[in-house]
């Protein structure tokens, strides 16, 4: 009983339970769901697909987690995804030999450098100029789509380089490379954050920036750092997304990904007001969203309804996290008077 209670109280319990439930539901609907095949030295299967196509979202959401932990938000990740993909594809398409490894690495390097720069711009606006994060990053979100289209000249750049395609579609020792990249990002950032004081300092800044500044935490620099990290993650995700389709689309690459990423972070138990964060929760949240999208396709539900699903999920999760909601709910159940059935939950806008 005690371990059970502790398990239920763990803050990753509900997201993980939702993920397991969703996966089980898929299994019931199509029993071959869990089948993982080994074909031509590569792993295939629905589960692998979820991980593979969820990798960019995991990356973006990891970056977003740190930004949200400082009490900020980064709306520009979708634009950074588009810009990074556009620059890399443009560079590869200009190469004499698109299959050259050096040229591809150069393209990757330039795209990543640019994403770091964009992240630094966001960080500058928020931490030095003190602009509200929503608005500061909104600028890049608006202008960034324009920049991406400027880079691609309004066209969709298609490329043929095999090395570039490997970023999103390649395999290393039977496992898709994109999964490995996401896994590495998760591992490295978790280590950096939890094995040093970095994570604690970020949580301190998110909890109370003024107090932590007075306590001697370089909060300005830390906040700046989180936006740079977020830009980096979005840039790598942009490489993956454009490599998956071997083309760069300034208009549609990474569209809505900022919303998915925020959703993943929130589902993972990181509060939008800043403070405590959890990378593990974020990964579970991102996988949950990706599974939801896959479920919608495999069950043959019209994909248009995904947005509705997500709206309800965001709202439900936020309500559950809201102390006011909990208090009202708890008071009702403690009174154990059959009051009108909690109509507040149904206020679905």
């Amino acid at each position: 009983m005690n371990t059970y209670a502790r398990l239920v109280k763990h803050r990753l319990f509900w997201p993980a339970a939702a993920l397991v439930l969703l996966l089980l539901g898929n299994f019931v609907a199509s029993p071959r769901f869990f089948a993982v095949q080994f074909r031509e030295g590569h792993l295939y299967g629905s589960l692998i697909d979820i991980l593979r196509f969820g990798a960019p979202l995991i990356l973006v959401a990891l970056g977003m987690t740190l930004v949200i932990a400082t009490g900020g938000i980064d709306l520009s990740v979708g634009s950074v995804v588009a810009i990074s993909g556009a620059v890399a594809c443009l560079w590869v398409s200009r190469l004499g030999d698109q299959n050259s490894l050096g040229g591809t690495l150069g393209a990757v390097g330039i795209a990543i450098a640019l994403s770091l720069l964009l992240g630094a711009c966001n960080g500058f606006l928020v931490s030095v100029l003190g602009v509200q994060p929503i608005v500061g990053t909104l600028i890049l979100m608006v202008a960034g789509r324009g920049l991406a289209q400027l880079i691609t000249d309004g066209q969709i750049i298609t490329i043929t380089g095999t090395h570039y395609r490997d970023i999103g579609g390649g395999f290393v020792a039977t496992v898709p490379l994109s999964i490995l990249i996401a896994l590495a990002a998760f591992g490295i950032s978790s280590l950096a954050v939890r094995k040093s004081a970095l994570g604690m300092l970020i949580e301190a800044v998110g909890g109370n920036p003024e107090a932590s500044r007075l306590a001697g935490v370089a909060s300005r620099r830390l906040i700046w750092l989180t936006y740079v990290f977020c830009g980096l993650c979005a840039g790598v995700a942009g490489l993956m997304i454009s490599s998956n389709v071997s083309s760069a689309d300034g208009n549609n690459a990474g569209l809505w990904i900022e919303l998915d990423a925020i959703l993943a972070v929130v589902i993972g138990g990181t509060r939008l007001t800043g403070g405590r964060f959890s990378f593990g929760g974020t990964v579970i949240g991102a996988l949950l969203i990706q599974t939801l999208s896959t479920t919608v396709y495999t069950l043959g539900i019209p994909p248009e309804t995904t947005l509705l699903f997500k709206a309800v999920v965001v709202l439900a999760v936020c309500l559950v996290q809201s102390p006011q909601f909990r208090r009202k709910f708890a008071r009702r159940s403690r009174r154990s008077v059959p009051v009108v059935k909690d109509e507040k939950v149904e206020v679905t806008l």
């Binding site: 919303l259 925020i262 929130v266 248009e304 509705l308 997500k310 309800v312 965001v314 709202l315 936020c318």
Partner: peptide, 12 residues
């Protein structure tokens, strides 16, 4: 956050 959810909902 709430209006973001509203944005999803209306677009959905």
């Amino acid at each position: 956050v709430v209006t973001l959810a509203g944005m999803f909902l209306a677009r959905g």
